[in-house]
Amino acid sequence: MRAPLLPTLLLTAGLLVGATVFGASRLQPGGTGPVTASPAPVQAEVEAHMPAVVEPPAQEATPPVPEPEVVTPPPPPPLPASARVSGVRHEYQRLNNCGPVTVGMALSRWGGRLDQYDIAPRLKPNRGDVNVSPEELAAFARSQGMNVHLAMNGDRALLKRFLAAGYPVIVETWFITHDSGGMGHYRLLTGYDDTKGAFSALDSYMGPLTMPYARFDELWRSFGRTFLVVSPPEQAGEVRELLGFRADPSAEKQEALRVALAEAERRQDAVGWLNLGQAKLALGDARGAARAFDEAFAAKADPSLDPTRPVRVAGGLPWRAMWYTFGPLEAYTRTGRYADVLRLTNAVLRDAPAHEEALYWRGRALGALGRPAGAKAAYREAVRLRPGYVRARAALASL
């Protein structure tokens, strides 16, 4: 340890210098030192009986403690120009079944044999459920004994690392159909090709397809670039290595905030502000999130996200956006803006009456406004629609 050594060396050096000067001035007659008066008799007596001053032997200098060597980890190996994950079974979906199908396809990479007819009844206990959240997909995969990394703010390099290592990746993207307009949609990425500048994906609605990098990112950013990696527990070490800094949840969320803030300031569009609000909320900043969501609702709508129904918007967002994202409802609830929560959930429930998440947040707002009967009714309906909805059950029990 270097800190305690320096004062000791200084003290020893000081004593050595002092002893040398003292001895030289007393033992060398006619020395060149300053002339002093003869000592008084008592002082001479004392000095006559003082032992001769002997300089201690020179001490060997203590070798300096070397600084610890800074080891820079080697850069990750270069990725191949293309890669494809094998052993994944494709399945076409029935109505609103992209979530059950996509998680089933991801599980098939690791030997899973379940299809949508096995999975959908567990993820969608009522046929009117228009949304299966990423958290629900992750919970189902974990119930099958798998590990899941679920996060926002993925990027192209991260996706390619996983794909090159043999891991398919579930991504949540915006999806536009000519007859039904814009909506959320899961896809399973299974490869990439830099020469073509595109990802390969298994799409439960369209079948196998390729997605150009830039076009894919535009659709992906509508959901904050959410991704899920499903893997066996024995692969946990390799998954952490592939994630890099993202294996630390705090660092991952901080980086998501940095990217979302830069993108929102640069693009000034509703999707950018929505992603910024989600990033702030993930770090516990409900007030900052609410301000960002306000900007999203105030932004100019992008008609390209729902070209068949451009007038159906929730502020600057396509009208179905609130089917899939609940950050504004949570932020407004946590900041006491219950009227905004009721306004937004009323709009969702008008188009999707069996939307259990909207019912849950409606119950939260009604309860905070002192309307327990309305809150109880909302929670009961949410639990009826999804009996395993833990948050709604807990809220109902607390009334």
Rank of each mutant, 00 (worst) to 15 (best):
A58P: 08
F140G: 10
K376F: 00
A373Y: 01
T32A: 13
A44R: 13
H178P: 13
W110E: 02
T226R: 11
R127W: 05
R113H: 09
W319G: 12
K280Y: 11
A262H: 11
G197T: 07
G23L: 15
V101Q: 01
E295N: 15
A83C: 00
A286T: 07
A141Q: 02
V383W: 00
G374S: 01
P73W: 13
P57D: 11
A373C: 05
H185T: 09
T333M: 03
L158W: 01
P4T: 08
V46I: 11
T62S: 06
G336D: 09
R89N: 11
H90V: 09
M206S: 09
R362V: 12
E91M: 02
Q59G: 07
D193C: 05
R215Q: 06
G111C: 12
M211F: 12
V101W: 00
Y389F: 14
D340A: 14
E135S: 08
L15Q: 02
A236Y: 03
R384Y: 04
P232D: 11
P7F: 05
Q59D: 02
E234I: 04
R362C: 05
H178C: 04
V88L: 03
G272D: 05
Y186K: 01
N126E: 12
L274C: 04
K280P: 15
W273A: 00
V239A: 10
P4M: 04
L27S: 11
L283P: 03
G87M: 03
P387W: 03
G316L: 02
A373R: 12
R391N: 05
G145P: 13
P212D: 07
E357R: 06
K160Q: 14
T36E: 09
L283M: 15
D115Q: 08
A37R: 06
T12K: 05
Y186E: 10
A262V: 06
D285H: 01
N131I: 06
V71A: 05
H178Y: 01
A120H: 08
F140Q: 06
V171W: 09
S25T: 11
F162C: 06
L15I: 02
L137V: 11
E263M: 00
I170W: 05
P208G: 07
F216C: 07
G288Y: 07
G191H: 04
L276C: 14
E241L: 15
G370W: 03
P233R: 01
E255N: 07
A256M: 08
V390K: 06
T20I: 07
E265H: 07
I170L: 14
A24T: 14
